[in-house]
């Protein structure tokens, strides 16, 4: 019991304890992961649309995007976005007369980096979901004379969303874990907060374990939510099993 109360003294919510900081940092992690995921939905949607285009150049672009971004470590992409935009900002600053290194906003660049990476994964999920639609329905809609945007809104979107849910759930789990990497450029999210706490109390195991449990909790809860969403979306579907 001594160990538990010592732990509660350290991670509790009293003055000088770390509980509130860790919870706030968990909020930042959720925010940055959600923003990155949302940005990724935009990139992924565009890329999936491009992959169905009749223009070969657009298809090649989408293919290149998903292949390259899925083949490179996320950490490198985060470095590129952070140092790349800092370099641009520093040059702009030099034009305006300021000297030295101007650091880019970490939340924004981090979320964008995650967005670009997860967009490549989401593109494949959306592509697969659209390909899972039965051809006959699309042909039938065409036969009724539906123009493209109506076809998309009425036939493709509602059904593809349903097929995409499990894949999107996987990408979300990936994004959540990826968000820990943004700590390397200094955003104070859960991972970075744990490092700070570990540094000032010399209890690294306690802090990283707490962070691990918080990550586990988020991923468990979101797993449950996605399972519920999948069940709801599949209500009208007849299946053999």
């Amino acid at each position: 019991m001594g160990a538990l109360s010592a732990y509660l003294d350290l991670m509790g919510f009293a003055e000088g304890a770390w509980g509130m900081d860790m919870l706030k940092a968990t909020g930042v992690t959720l925010c940055v992961a959600l923003s990155g995921f949302a940005a990724g939905a935009v990139f992924g949607g565009l890329s999936a649309a491009a992959s169905f285009s009749s223009l070969r150049a657009l298809r090649a672009l989408a293919d290149g995007y998903t292949t390259i971004l899925r083949g490179i470590p996320d950490l490198l992409v985060i470095y590129l976005f952070y140092f790349g935009s800092s370099a641009v900002l520093s040059q702009l600053g030099a034009l305006l007369g300021s000297e030295g290194f101007i650091s880019a906003p970490v939340f924004l660049t981090g979320a964008l980096a995650i967005g670009v990476v997860s967009g490549a994964y989401q593109a494949e999920v959306y592509r697969g979901a659209v390909l899972a639609l039965s051809k006959g329905e699309i042909e039938a809609a065409r036969a009724y004379g539906m123009p493209n945007h109506l076809l998309f809104r009425r036939i493709i979107l509602p059904q593809a969303t349903r097929f995409a849910i499990p894949g999107v759930g996987n990408v979300w789990q990936l994004v959540l874990k990826e968000s820990a990497l943004i700590s390397v450029v200094g955003l104070i999210e859960l991972m970075r907060q744990a490092q700070i706490g570990a540094g000032s109390t010399r209890k690294p195991f306690t802090f990283f374990l707490t962070a691990a449990v918080l990550y586990l909790l988020i991923s468990f809860v979101s797993g449950v939510l996605f399972r519920i969403a999948e069940k709801r979306a599949m209500r009208g579907i007849r299946r053999a099993l």
Binding site: S183, F208, Y215, F220
Partner: peptide, 14 residues
């Protein structure tokens, strides 16, 4: 369910 980075830090620093 946890990031690889947390696992790595738990082992190396923890």
């Amino acid at each position: 369910g946890t990031p690889l980075l947390v696992q790595l830090y738990l082992i190396y620093y923890g």
